[in-house]
Design a protein around this nucleic acid. Sequence first.
RNA 1: GGGGGGAUAGUGUAAUUGGUAGCACGACAGAUUCUGAUUCUGUUAGUCUGAGUUCAAGUCUCAGUCCCCCUACCA
Length: 598
Amino acid sequence: MGDDTPKRHFIQQIIDADVASGKWGAPGDGSVLATRFPPEPNGFLHVGHAKSICMNHGLAREFGGRFVLRFDDTNPAKEEQRYVDSIVRDVAWLGARWEGASEGDPTAGVKFASDYFGQMHDWAVELIEKGLAYVDEQSADEIRATRGSLKEPGTPSPWRDRPVAENLAEFEAMRRGEHADGSRVLRAKIDMASPNMNLRDPVMYRVVNAPHHRTGDAWHIYPMYDWAHGLEDSIEGITHSICTLEFEDHRPLYDWFIDAINKGRADADKIHHPQQIEFARLNPTYIITSKRKLLQLVEDGRVSGWDDPRMPTVSGLRRRGYTSESVRNFVVGVGVTKFNAMHDLGLLEGALREDLNTRAPRRMGVLDPLKVTITNWGAHGDEERLEDLEAVNNPEDDSAGTRTVRFGKTIWIERDDFMEDPPKKFFRLGPGREVRLRSAFWVTCHDSVKNDAGEVVELRCTYDPDTRGGGNPPPDAHGKVRKVKGTVHWVGDADCVDAEVRLFERLFTAEKPGKATGDPLDDLNPDSLAVVEHAKLERALAEPTPDEPDWPDGIRRFQFERLGYFCEDAEASRAAGRPVFNRAVTLRDSWAKEAKKG
RNA sequence: GGGGGGAUAGUGUAAUUGGUAGCACGACAGAUUCUGAUUCUGUUAGUCUGAGUUCAAGUCUCAGUCCCCCUACCA
């Protein structure tokens, strides 16, 4: 305590003890550790999966062990190749390198449960032969009805005690596709009276006469999760099979199946028995992670797709401008426990700001442009004159260098940065007030021009040539130095590009979407997307410049000074034929807080 | 009238397994600042309840309370 020993979460502590005792190999040899990420290819990955990926991969890396990426593709009805492709891409983007990964081939080394169907089938036959499994001909409804309830035991199936030979023959018929979907299942013979529902003769195989995205029509039976999962782990030599809390009740079954296979075998022939460990899933505020609800958002057109920048999907976060580093920092910061927590979404946003603050080049952009005419510019007949000024790219990183911004008679500032009748604490432009234009000059507002509707459409200001570069002017005759309270961003009219900027807010207005009515969609934020059609950005933003960092994912990210962090939406830019930027997150804004107080 | 898990400042997470309850985020106040950003400093606030064991309990015992999960041929 008080020292800098790293905090070890409970799973690390379990592994520490296992490595020390040599549970899986020689004592002290961490290379025997093996973890896995086992997604079902039936949807897109979201932040919650990111936690699992980072933890499993991080553990393997920390101990020098193995990390396996394995698809749990045991249900052909719901699974598709396109999900495999997106998941592989997302896992790689998050920075997790799985065993067998290679630069050239995205799916190199990726494992599939379907590759083990043959082995699983043989083991199932073994259980039948041991009298530990039987083919049940009851319908799904009958099975459900006879399973009992939480407080009452179930009743045994009439098929429970049929002869081994018959079971073998029936199972073989199922496999060959001689039975209709739903007509038969293979069940483990455990205990219909168990207080743990999972042990009431769970289904191991069901008949599905449908093509599988990888095995085609080779199979007519498909294994259930409980039967398959531990076997997949066993085959791959997984030592610590880490899953979420709701599988705690399944652990006895996980162990039962492996023990059943090992029953009667000599020690040398026993299959590997991994340890299942459960942890609490990630549960950020203002977010939903239900695949069903996420799908509904997409299908109802509430968002533009799975990768809409407002979506909590990995692809959404990526398009929003999140870095994989920030996502990783967020999930490790949240910790690993068995407590059902609520994670403040502000932590995710903060992780992004923290990362981008040090890395993102600064640029200037005006979202809601207000014209400013410098009335004393060109007082000697050179009104067209433009002046190049040097602006620092990143005050947090000297190596980021500087760039040139071009100043002239007409410039644009943010409409918010002017008030006709400003309160005392407003440090920006107002009648008679002086501010600094970032990296440029100090200007004083003398006059504003209104349109017929009474809206201010132009500011007429003078500039002070002695403040070139933005620095303080020389002291006056009495040695007094003029001060200015505020600095505002701007773009020069002669040196800006027209762009579309998309501003995102949280997708939901409630901390726990759906808490009030049961339907998260009732808490949708109607203002989660605001499109700025005509922002004016400094020219450097239009095309990549050599002074920009090499982002590993190729996504250009910037801080628009005083506004927030933005990334280029390359796809949308191409489609629009002009730059399109997405706002990832705003800067912290203590003025907005102050202004709200009144 | 079942089974499985969990409870430490507002939020999240530690506490050498019985020995000074710490960290991060937030909030608040101040300093610095060519971004009302960043950075820095300070303040704030906690062991679910009640008994018990002990010199000493977040930690051990007992009894409660509250929360989450479990009745798919999904994973």
